[in-house]
Amino acid sequence: MKNILVIMAHPKFEHSRIMKGMVDEIQDMPNVTIRDLYELYPDFNVQVQEEQELLLLADVLVWLHPVYWYSSPPLLKQWIDLVLEFNWAYGPRGTYLKGKTAFSAISTGGNDAAYSANGKRGHGLTQFLLPFKQTATLCGMNYLPPFHIGGSHELAAQKLKQETGLFKSLLEFLTQNRDFSGLHQFPKLNQ
């Protein structure tokens, strides 16, 4: 079994629907650890050592967050700034994350169609998430395409349940398989 570390950032989790649905689905899974950043570090004082220890134990890192202004909420950026230290996560002696897998699991207000080259936003999601991809790459991690739930403001409850269920089965797949060639069969992880 592989260990999955979910770094979740939502500044108003109590009002969230998508994030809550996703967390509800996965929180009782064995081998999945969820870090609720805004609950752990309301003062942005991220505890570097603690976070690094958890990262060491993980095989797969998930950045789980809603997309605000085409990026993550600030505390996730703070986490990245503080935890991914020079000579620990990257740099000549920074080898601790090498070979691990990372990906973003996100929700957006715009629907899937909006995030395409011809859509309203004018670029695909992977383009918007380039900084995250490059962060993972610099740390020697394998960055997977994002898991995306779009149209968060208009999503019906039933559809939401279906999509969060997909997220759960994706994580199940990731804990159980060494090689991710079967990933393409997941409709949401395909961009």
């Binding site: 570097v48 700034d81 230290e85 020079f86 740099g91 000549p92 002696r93």
Partner: peptide, 15 residues
């Protein structure tokens, strides 16, 4: 070390 380039500079020099 947060947002502190000095350690990076030292590390690169060392390298």
């Amino acid at each position: 070390h947060a947002w502190d380039a000095s350690s990076i500079k030292e590390g690169l020099k060392e390298n």
